Amino acid sequence: MRITVDGFEDVHRVQQARYPVLEPRWQPVHTIYVPADLFSSSTPSSWGGQAFDLMKAHLPDAAAMAEVFELPAGLAADVHARVAAKLAAEPVEDLRVDFEDGYGVRPDAEDGDAVAAASALARLHAEGGLPRRWGLRVKSFADGDPGRSVRTLELFLTEVVTRAGALPPGFTLTFPKVLMEEYLGQFCEVLAALESRLALPSPVRFEIQVEAPQTVMFLRADLAESLGGRLAAAHFGVFDYTAALGLPPHEQRLDHPACDHARHVMQTAFAGTGVELSDGSLAASPASASTEDVHALWRRHAALVRHSLSHGFYQGWDMHPSHLVSRFATVYAFHLAHYDAHAARVRAWEERRAADGGVLDEPATIKTLVAALHRADSALSPASPKA
């Protein structure tokens, strides 16, 4: 008699839905966010121009790149060329127009700013300058006025669709300060209603910001599944999170152990689900226009980006044009430094031999190496693809 496993098919279907096997896909290395009242159709090019001018003035050659970012000469030359090309071709990969903390409470202005920002984004789309990902951060339901958040979103989407004829690709929403899990279901209902009203592609997806200990407590593997495929990403918010824990102001930093804990919970909760992860930001700009102060800012930001990368967070938030230089320099150096060695180990595995140094890789390690190569190829393109 054949022995069967009762209920296996049902459990396996749940597994496939919760942990889908997904093809590798592009993920931006950063998100910039700009207060709505300061946003215009020239914002991406302005950020790129300011970053390029800073690089020209304070990072003129490969020797300077090697000194500031502690890179070998050959790697520094490669990274320097790539960063310059990136700033000229695509300085912004992911953009959020901010109506939350960066914008503040402006009851008499928010309607107009929502329409104006949407109009500017539609103009960017028409001109071919819309970043590959773009969208807005609405106000939190935790603020006690979900109607304000919903009205801004509706005005914004209506204006974009009216001007562009449809919702351009790459759109996503940022939903901040999710202190109660129930807010997520309520937000999904709002999105469903807007899809119906504006004939939007379904489902409109959004990212949650993990900015409070309360949020960390309800992160789990079936959360994305329960939201009907709408949850695209989880982004860490360092300043609200560390403030909520009661850390002193000088310890509100991205590399604090408390932030590491939150990030690791995010990783554990969403591993295998397809939900992307992003780290937070550095709330600082150069203290002055002097080379010393610009270099100090780049070194601090680069250290935080390296910390994120080493913890498996391949995206972060940038708050100032200067951050673009240190973001791309650090990301490129991180991927290029290991690219050839990773590729050699994958080739050795495929040829059923030990890699250099006698390394005998396990299948799980090979899977990780292949994923790292894909991330590198994605991060290094399109301005300077890896040959």
Rank of each mutant, 00 (worst) to 15 (best):
A62S: 15
K386G: 07
G246M: 06
D240N: 04
P321W: 03
S202Q: 12
T31W: 00
Q209I: 12
R352N: 13
G316C: 11
F313D: 03
D293W: 04
R197G: 00
V204T: 15
A289G: 04
S119T: 13
A76R: 09
S140K: 07
S310N: 13
G49N: 03
P257K: 03
G246Q: 12
A258F: 08
P91W: 11
R106Q: 15
V305S: 13
L360R: 12
F187V: 09
L380C: 11
R123S: 14
Q267M: 14
L324G: 09
V105F: 14
R299L: 08
E362Y: 05
L121A: 08
F328P: 02
M65R: 10
A117N: 08
G49V: 09
D255L: 11
S326R: 02
S226A: 14
L191P: 11
L227E: 06
D53F: 02
L167I: 01
Q16M: 01
A164H: 11
G272A: 10
G128S: 02
A232V: 03
A233I: 09
F236Y: 15
L136I: 15
G316P: 04
P201S: 01
H264G: 02
Q315M: 10
L223G: 05
A63R: 15
L200M: 01
A84I: 09
H295M: 05
V190H: 13
A355K: 03
V346P: 09
A244T: 12
F99Q: 00
A89M: 08
F141W: 13
D111C: 10
A348Q: 11
S326D: 04
L87A: 07
I208W: 08
M1W: 09
F52V: 01
